[in-house]
C-alpha cells in the first residue's frame, strides 16, 4: 500500500503531474482571490465577460505581432478586457439597459469577432484555436527535465519548468499584495460604497483597479488552463466560501482552500479517475476541475453553516 503510494508519487509523478497540479492550484487561487470581491459587489459575471474577451485579445495580438509569445498575447488580452469594460459602460449608458444585457451583448460580440478572426486569418502555423482557448492545455505542461523529487532543488532542472508556472506565481503574489495593501479600502468600499466615498476612498478608481486585477488573473490563468476554469474559479470557490463564514478574511481563506482542492482533485480525477473504471484515456482536466468546484458549491449550499440569508427562517 505504502509502496504503491511511493511509486504513484515517484519520479514519473514529478515529471508528468506535479507541474500541472501546481499550475492548476496557482491559477485557481489567483482567480478565486479577486472573485471574492466581485461576488460581494454583485459583479460575479464580470469574470465571465472578461474570460470571453481574452480570445479576441489574443487573436488581435497575434494579428499585430505575428507571433504567439507570451508578452504581446497578455498585453492584447488585457487591452481587450479593458475595451470590453469600456464598451459595457457605453452600451449601458447609451441604451439605458441593465448591466447584464450590456455585458451579454459585449462579450458575445467580442467572442464572435475573435472566433471569426481566428478562422479568417492563417493561424495554422501556430497553436491557437477555440478548443485551446476554452480548455487550455494543463495536461501538456509537463516538466521534461525532472527525474524525481530531487529536481525540485536542482537549479538546472528548475530552469526548464514550464514558463506558465513562474508567471502564474508572480501574478498570484501580485494579486495577493494588491488585496493585502488595499484590504481596508476594498472591504469598506465593497460593503458600503457611500461610506467609503465619504471617508475619502476613491471608489471608482478602486473598482477599476479590481477589474484590471481580475483581467490580469484571467489572462495569466487562461494561457495555462483555459477559460472554463477561469470562469468557474472566479465564481464557485468564493460562492462556497461565502456560505461558510460571515467574515471577509475567513471567506478569502476558504475560497483559496476550495480553489486548491478543486484544482488538485480535479486534476487527479481527470488523469487517474478513468483508469479506476478501466479506461486507458484521461478526460479533460479543465472540465473536471470546474466540475469539482461545482460539487463543493453544492455541498456548501446544502451544509454550509452560513448558507441562509440573515434573518431568514429555517424552512420547514
Amino acid at each position: 500500500m505504502i509502496d504503491d503510494l511511493i511509486t504513484a508519487l515517484g519520479a514519473e509523478f514529478v515529471q508528468l503531474s506535479l507541474t500541472p497540479i501546481v499550475i492548476g492550484v496557482l491559477a485557481a487561487v489567483a482567480c478565486a482571490l479577486p472573485g471574492n470581491f466581485l461576488l460581494l459587489r454583485r459583479q460575479a459575471l464580470i469574470g465571465d465577460a472578461i474570460s470571453h474577451v481574452v480570445l479576441p485579445g489574443i487573436v488581435g495580438a497575434f494579428l499585430v505581432t505575428g507571433t504567439i509569445t507570451a508578452v504581446p498575447m497578455m498585453l492584447g488580452a488585457g487591452v481587450a478586457a479593458i475595451i470590453a469594460v469600456v464598451m459595457i459602460e457605453v452600451v449601458k449608458r447609451l441604451g439605458r439597459v441593465e448591466p447584464g444585457a450590456a455585458m451579454g451583448l459585449v462579450f458575445t460580440t467580442l467572442f464572435a469577432a475573435g472566433v471569426l478572426f481566428l478562422e479568417i486569418t492563417d493561424t495554422s502555423s501556430v497553436h491557437i484555436d477555440v478548443q485551446h482557448a476554452l480548455l487550455g492545455n494543463l495536461e501538456s505542461l509537463i516538466w521534461f527535465d525532472a527525474d524525481g523529487w530531487g529536481s525540485v532543488l536542482d537549479p538546472a532542472a528548475l530552469a526548464t519548468l514550464p514558463p506558465q508556472l513562474p508567471r502564474l506565481a508572480i501574478v498570484l503574489v501580485g494579486i495577493g499584495l494588491f488585496i493585502l495593501l488595499f484590504w481596508k479600502e476594498l472591504k469598506i468600499s465593497t460593503f458600503d460604497a457611500a461610506f467609503a466615498g465619504a471617508i475619502g476612498i476613491r471608489t471608482r478608481l478602486l473598482s477599476f483597479a479590481l477589474v484590471v486585477v481580475t483581467a490580469i488573473a484571467a489572462v495569466a490563468a487562461f494561457d495555462a488552463v483555459g477559460s472554463i476554469i477561469v470562469i468557474a474559479m472566479f465564481v464557485c470557490p468564493p460562492a462556497s466560501a461565502r456560505l461558510m463564514t460571515n467574515q471577509l478574511g475567513r471567506q478569502v481563506g476558504w475560497s483559496a482552500l476550495f480553489a486548491s482542492i478543486s484544482a488538485i482533485l480535479g486534476y487527479v480525477f481527470a488523469g487517474y479517475g478513468p483508469g479506476w473504471f478501466g479506461s486507458p484515456y484521461a478526460v479533460s482536466a479543465a472540465g473536471m476541475i470546474a466540475t469539482i468546484s461545482g460539487v463543493i458549491l453544492i455541498l456548501t449550499c446544502l451544509f454550509g453553516p452560513q448558507r441562509k440569508r440573515t434573518g431568514q427562517r429555517a424552512e420547514a
Binding site: R242, A290, S293, K308, R309
Partner: peptide
C-alpha cells in the same frame, strides 16, 4: 435557498455545467 445572489448562481451553473460537459466530450472522443 441560499444567500448567494442570482449573478453568482448564473456564473456557477454555467461554468460547472460547461466544465462537466467538456469532461463528457473528452470521454466521447475516446
Amino acid at each position: 435557498k441560499t444567500r448567494l445572489t442570482e449573478d453568482a448562481a448564473i456564473g456557477a451553473v454555467l461554468s460547472v455545467f460547461f466544465g462537466f460537459g467538456i469532461v463528457l466530450l473528452t470521454v466521447i472522443q475516446t
